[in-house]
Design a protein around this nucleic acid. Sequence first.
DNA 1: TGCAAAGCGGAACAGCGTTCCGTATCGTAT
DNA 2: ATACGATACGGAACGCTGTTCCGCTTTGCA
Lengths: 198, 198
Amino acid sequence: MTESSPPRGGSAASKRKDARRNQQTLLDAAAAVFVTSGVDAPVREIAAKAGVGLGTFYRHFPTRADLVIAVYRHQVDTCAEAGPALLANGPTPFAALERWVDHFVDFLVTKHGLAAAMQADGSGFDALHAYFIDRLVPVCTQLLDAAVAAGEIRPDLDAYHLMRGIGNLCIGTDSDPRYDARPLVVLLLAGLRRPHRT
Amino acid sequence: MTESSPPRGGSAASKRKDARRNQQTLLDAAAAVFVTSGVDAPVREIAAKAGVGLGTFYRHFPTRADLVIAVYRHQVDTCAEAGPALLANGPTPFAALERWVDHFVDFLVTKHGLAAAMQADGSGFDALHAYFIDRLVPVCTQLLDAAVAAGEIRPDLDAYHLMRGIGNLCIGTDSDPRYDARPLVVLLLAGLRRPHRT
DNA sequence: TGCAAAGCGGAACAGCGTTCCGTATCGTAT
DNA sequence: ATACGATACGGAACGCTGTTCCGCTTTGCA
């Protein structure tokens, strides 16, 4: 799982100048549109905002998921890298896990429709799901294992299910103002705690 | 029999014979298609299976949500009615809540895509979401209150959030075989438990 | 400057939910 | 039995998606 699947072969400078420029324009436009219209924004809207045609869009990002991944790759990587750091600095592994999960929820909740898109079936977003899982499950596993080793939580749950559950809980936070995923995520983690030893 | 003055009052038998027949055919076809293709099955597929045109479909069910509600109304009502019964027969309110939630999860998990459709935004499924909430939140509130009164759980969470969280956790159970929502739901409820008093 | 090769734009295709209206059927009054 | 108005039907058509395809333009090198 070293390399997932970048849109094009070499990422750096193996293309024509205008091609690279358009790709960047597209990324910027997508980032802007995602904020206002969510990640489900029509491809045409993004292409229009970038001032390019549909052909250009699809050449750079064969599937919508590739675009979303490209837009958020940096933030996902940052989130992944925060795991070990929190583990090193946190008072306890469980506290580190709590904070890391909080970061993750923050990320999901601020990206309209991202959580939903990640779990959506057959919408061509499978690659997005896979990317998140590949990148974050190992980190989550590390945090979970440490907390288990410290005797803070039960070993019942694997990282995949935890990530998946958190992601699911974050669905719809943007469309329904009265729904707040955070308390539920807290509860989920609380349910994981090992009953205090006697 | 006993229906001789149609122009008045009743909602049921005031239509033409073929209309009622087609409505039932549509319901049967939908129920069958939902099992195989999920609740997101194309309207055309359902209409074709029922052997009727699209116009007929939309006259009977102005929106897709109306169809889904009509198909599952009975089961939702059954679920709602099970609440008080479980509360009366269960050893403790929390046990009743657990069982009731289990029934609810069973229901959601066996209907492909139902959980996802319920939370889907702007897909015309809002009415579906509203129906579930209207029907089940009161029951859940009753169970929750009883458990709180019995000192079994913390009063942190309102029924809407719990229902919503459970519904969200059930999303994607059908499309991903390795994902199982049940343990997560159990964990969520476990997180609700009041720490044992001294 | 010339000229492949690489890239671009947008028309076109397929599939969706939904609307609309000419036509067929039903129920009844004659 | 027939005629006729109300009711319901079927499916073409519209608008919106994602995606593909191909004639034309731009680029970068000789």
